[in-house]
Nucleic acid binder design. Structure first.
Length: 474
RNA sequence: GUCCCCGUCGUCUAGGGGUCUAGGACAUCGGGUUUUCAUCCCGGUAACAGGGGUUCGAAUCCCCUCGGGGAUGCCA
């Protein structure tokens, strides 16, 4: 069994394509199949080397390891379509000679007109040049007349295939849009034409791709038949949509895998979310690490309808991984984000782990740490607006005064009992007691438990922060 | 326009003729733990697109309508 993921390098790795890559990978692992990467760079205008590199990087980051690809030729290469022109030319010649293909010399306007007419009459579109003798085609071509190569779609023929997800899908050749271009006027072959050639030559047995290719499939099958190439098994994945049910795009939120990486999503969580989108397990368990995904997944249990990408659920899932992993591993992952938040020099490892241990539950993604890390690492924390207005309340002023007195009376080794001492002296309790303390100590209204925070920041910082609050509010 | 695919809580889904007064998860709301916030635990609100059939019986089968998506000459 051989599967493939065939990105076109015209930008970053999109989350929807990543889903396709993930599903292919799960299947590959489940059935011990080869996983081929093929770069579909037939669009010379938009394809770039940079995006090829970044796409491959992102796939690797996600945890996808292919067994064949541009960097690993196992005898089925080249794996970039731009390097396979000589192969496609051969097939185009065959198509031309056998009469399955023909050169079309019509102008765009001409074709548009003819198509509109065919449409109006509700008849299948047949190209004007469709029956031009080969000799004349060659003569005109030799004269330098511009042409495209088209596939001659047979009349009234049933084309059907068993899709692993959609079931049996049937088309009539009269309804697929008529004779279609396989080679552009600039000589470059078109995707719809060469996918099927490459899949055959690379011996791909199962094509798992997005549903947007479903309507293209009959054309590809027709070409395979004309060229006497094998037709692979198909599975068309329903599309991923944005919250407005339109195809997922930038305006819905982040769509680039690279940005997820930067924001501090774990590849395991993304893999989990993407791999679970569109189906569910019998037991209802959703936190599935890759091996478990491989164990439980079947193409057959993917739903047929498109799925809305739920950013919140992804976050939740990411947070769940953050809570689940061992502390030292999580600490390691947070370090770059702490540095990015402006803290170049970190405390010693054991203290750092204490901090992470206190903070990890407040974070869903790694970059969330920037919102809380200052509680521990700053000398003092400027209160935000909301905290500021809390500290101006009378009961808060009371607490500030009490703290200010107390901090002068206790010794550094007594700070673990600081809160209980404040409590003894305080006329307030509950919210009116703890909120002010939190505000004084951390500059904000939420965060880890104060009993944990205070010992970690230590006496000096505690005192400094109390003095600051005192000078500012009393 | 034509063809193809699809339509269960806000979202992801379970369900494949009676066990569905439709189950789970995220989100949301309420309660409990934390003498504060978060975490955590418990509970609630919330859906079979509409209309016809078939059947003793339909979310489950068929048809139509509506709605969404995709394809229809030089994106993949």
């Amino acid at each position: 069994m051989r599967v493939r993921f065939a990105p076109s390098p015209t930008g970053y790795l999109h989350i929807g394509n990543a889903r396709t890559a993930v599903i292919n990978y799960i299947i590959a692992k489940k059935y011990n199949a080869e996983y081929i990467i093929r770069i579909e760079d037939t669009d010379k205008e938009r394809s770039t080397k940079e995006s090829e590199i970044s796409i491959l990087q992102d796939l690797k980051w996600l945890g996808i390891n292919w067994t064949e690809g541009p960097d690993m030729d196992k005898g089925h290469g080249p794996y970039r379509q731009s390097e396979r022109d000589h192969i496609y030319k051969e097939y185009t010649d065959r198509l031309l000679k056998s009469g399955h293909g023909f050169r079309c010399f019509c102008s765009r306007e001409q074709v548009e007109e003819d198509k509109a007419k065919a449409m109006a009459e509700n008849k299948p579109f047949h190209d004007r040049c469709r029956n031009m003798p080969l000799a004349e085609q060659e003569r005109l071509a030799a004269e330098g007349k511009e042409f495209t190569v088209k596939f001659k779609v047979p009349e009234n023929t049933e084309i059907s295939f068993d899709d692993k997800i959609k079931g049996t899908v049937t088309f009539n050749s009269d309804n697929i849009g008529g004779d279609f271009i396989i080679v552009r006027s600039d000589g470059g072959p078109v995707y719809n034409y060469i996918v099927i050639i490459d899949d055959a030559l690379m011996e791909v047995t199962h094509v798992i791709r997005g549903e947007d290719h479903l309507s293209n499939t009959p054309k590809q099958i027709l070409i395979a038949k004309a060229l006497d190439l094998p037709v692979p098994e198909y599975a068309h994945l329903p599309l991923i949509l944005g919250s407005d049910k339109k195809k997922l795009s930038k305006r819905h939120g982040i769509t680039s895998v690279d940005l997820y990486k930067q924001e501090g999503y774990l590849p395991e969580a993304l893999m989990n979310y993407l791999g679970l989108l569109g189906w569910s397990t019998e037991s209802g368990e959703e936190l599935l690490e890759f091996e478990r995904l491989v164990e439980l997944f079947e193409l057959e249990n993917i739903g047929k309808s498109p799925a809305v990408f739920d950013f919140q659920k992804l976050k939740w899932m990411n947070g769940a991984y953050l809570k689940k992993y061992p502390l030292d591993k999580v600490t390691e992952m947070f370090i770059p984000y702490i540095k990015a938040a402006g803290f170049e020099t970190l405390p010693e490892r054991s203290k750092l782990e204490d901090i992470i241990s206190a903070l990890r539950n407040s974070c869903e993604i790694l970059s969330d740490i920037s919102k809380f890390i200052g509680i521990f690492l700053n000398e003092i924390n400027e209160p935000d607006e909301e905290t500021d207005s809390h500290l101006k309340e009378d009961y808060a002023i009371d607490i500030i005064k009490i703290c200010n007195e107390l901090i002068e009376q206790i010794t550094p080794d007594e700070i673990s009992s600081f809160i209980s001492k404040v409590k003894e002296k305080s006329p307030h309790k509950g919210k009116k007691l703890f909120h002010p303390i939190r505000a004084i100590v951390t500059g904000r209204l939420s965060g880890p438990e104060l009993d944990i925070v205070i010992p970690i920041i230590g006496f000096d910082k505690l005192k400094k922060r109390i003095k600051y609050a005192y000078s500012r509010y009393c």
